[in-house]
């Protein structure tokens, strides 16, 4: 177990190193940060001096070394626009994004498991066919279009739900702004969560269905039937548990990906999260903020994947044992 964690930590650090290198490398190609920082009146000589001060004229590797030296101490640079440490800016926006992703994940889990299982057990029923047909549609429609349609129907025509922003938020754990603890915040979460979930939900339903169909054809399911067990127990214990193994592996990666997908959703709903911030940072050529964002998202990916492997080990006894004795 310890060895497993140690190995994952080393792997994670390597991945982070590569991510930092790549994200730092692209900042050179983002355009001239000085154009955004200073006004028209500043002369070329002053600009040159500012570049020197910021270290923008040094060779790439020198700049990268300087960046990394600070980065390991938790300093990912200072945002040109906010004039604050980039990491602080991102961490301030993080709760909004994580809550959005969390809400969407919850929605996916609650809907995809019953739907996928139903489709596997009743392959011939019209309801399964409807679910599968709809899921094709769901995969095909881009997130922003779903979002705009949702806003049009539920906010503009019906007027049931707010169309932008987070609404009221409460402070929990000191600095975490949460929308989960009051009605207004929850109402604001509904549409963004649905549209963020819309791209992954069909994928999950299809994945669960096909894995479940496979599980239902195994010998142990046939043996469970021969044992005289009730069908419900066979479906929801024997088959479902085995179905979840591959789903967890794929699911973990997909949930990580959803953090990236928030860029679209957050833009449409003016959601004050990291994705929205990232888009603004790109427009402003706020290089340190962009680099910091890429690194933070990379770190989230690594953490989520490690967690997924741990959960997988909890469900699968074969893996757990190997981890223990290794």
């Amino acid at each position: 177990m310890l060895l497993f964690l140690a190995r994952r930590l080393i792997q994670g650090l390597l991945v982070m190193l590569v991510i930092s290198f790549i994200s730092f490398a692209i900042q050179d190609n983002l355009g001239d940060p000085l154009r955004e920082m200073v006004g028209q009146s500043v002369s070329e000589a002053e600009r040159q001096q500012l570049r020197d001060e910021l270290g923008l004229n040094d060779p790439f590797l020198v700049q990268y070394g300087r960046f990394m030296a600070k980065a390991v101490q938790g300093d990912l640079g200072t945002s040109y626009f906010f004039k604050e440490p980039a990491l602080d800016v991102i961490l301030g926006k993080l709760p909004a994004t994580l809550e959005l992703v969390f809400g969407a994940t919850l929605l996916i889990i609650v809907l995809s498991i019953p739907a996928g299982v139903y489709c596997a057990i009743h392959p011939q029923s019209w309801f399964s066919k409807a679910i599968l047909g709809w899921s094709i549609l769901g995969i095909s429609i881009p997130v922003f279009l779903t979002a705009i349609l949702l806003i049009y129907v539920f906010s503009i025509e019906l007027g049931w739900l707010p169309s932008y922003g987070r609404g009221e938020v409460d402070l929990i754990f000191g600095s975490w702004e949460s929308g989960f603890f009051n009605k207004d915040g929850l109402l604001h979460l509904v549409l963004p969560c649905i549209s963020l979930a819309s791209i992954m939900l069909p994928l999950f339903i299809r994945l669960i269905r096909s894995e479940m169909v496979e599980a239902l054809h195994t010998e142990y399911v046939k043996f469970a039937k021969a044992k005289g067990l009730k069908l419900t127990r066979i479906y929801y214990l024997h088959a479902l548990k085995n179905t979840m193994l591959p789903v967890i592996t794929v699911g973990g990666v997909q949930i990580g990906t959803m953090v990236a997908y928030t860029i679209l959703t957050e833009s449409v709903f003016q959601w004050p999260g990291m994705g929205f911030m990232f888009l603004e940072a790109v427009n402003r050529v706020d290089a340190p903020l962009i680099v910091a964002y890429l690194i933070v998202v990379g770190a989230i990916f690594v953490i989520v994947n490690t967690l997924v492997d741990l959960i997988y080990g909890l469900i699968n006894p074969t893996v757990r044992l190997a981890g223990k004795s290794a």
């Binding site: 010998e219 142990y220 046939k222 043996f223 469970a224 021969a226 548990k241 699968n316």
Partner: peptide, 11 residues
């Protein structure tokens, strides 16, 4: 059943 490797649920 024939194959004891597959007739028990591994989980």
């Amino acid at each position: 059943f024939q194959d004891p490797m597959t007739s028990l649920n591994p989980l």
